[in-house]
């Protein structure tokens, strides 16, 4: 029963990927290339590239792509459902606990301890993105001077516009994409 297999595979991916998309990648590979013969390694690499080029979580993008390849559009829907099912149950339970007990002093204290850590993690994710933009890879290269000058220019301009004029972030993202097309074509 292919639908059940899809659901179960992506259920496991959804359940065991903690900490964002890059943590999910090896799990997806294991399920769809190693455990099941659903994708070849080349197809897997392709879909991971496309997942980074399109909006949405990598796991959901992967679920949709694999589902379609294996069992058409219904397969995509079922794989996606499997992927989000663990989140729905676990996160809703945590939400219930949070809103019920957040008034307690102790819970307030714990949350106050977490908030600066969350900011630090978002900052780190931002740095990873900037390295990706400047060097085209996830970690810093040995030669730091070989960066993409256009990318640096767009990043700084976007940042200054955000701080100064406080536009909606979506406009800045769209504008940066447009700037990318224009500048990379011209230069």
């Amino acid at each position: 029963m292919i639908y059940l297999e899809l659901f179960w595979s992506f259920f496991q991916i959804g359940l065991f990927s903690i900490g964002g998309g890059y943590a999910a990648m090896p799990l997806i590979q294991n399920q769809v290339v190693d455990v099941h013969p659903w994708l070849t390694m080349t197809q897997f690499a392709d879909i991971m590239t496309i997942a980074e080029m399109t909006p949405g979580p990598i796991a959901i993008n992967g679920a949709t792509f694999v589902g379609i390849q294996v069992a058409g559009f219904p397969g995509a829907v079922i794989a996606t459902l499997g992927c989000i099912f663990p989140s729905c149950v676990i996160v809703m339970t945590l939400a219930y606990i949070y809103y019920r007990y957040r008034g307690l002093n102790m819970v307030q204290g714990i949350l106050a301890g977490l908030r600066p850590a969350v900011i630090a993690m978002i900052a780190s994710a931002g740095i990873s993105l900037l390295i990706m933009a400047l060097y085209g890879q996830r970690s810093l290269p040995s030669d730091l001077k070989q960066f993409d000058a256009i990318a640096l220019f767009i990043s700084i301009t976007a940042f200054i516009i955000l701080r100064k004029f406080k536009p909606h972030p979506l406009w800045v993202m769209a504008g940066s994409g447009l700037a990318g097309i224009i500048l990379y074509t011209l230069i």
């Binding site: 392709d46 976007a158 972030p169 097309i181």
Partner: peptide, 26 residues
């Protein structure tokens, strides 16, 4: 889609914008 140069140029630009948005909120 994967091999389209315009898509990858837009993506490269957008990545910069996304990084800026993240630093702004941080």
């Amino acid at each position: 889609f994967r091999d389209n140069p315009i898509v990858s140029m837009a993506m490269a630009g957008m990545l910069c914008g996304v990084a800026a948005v993240i630093f702004d909120v941080v």
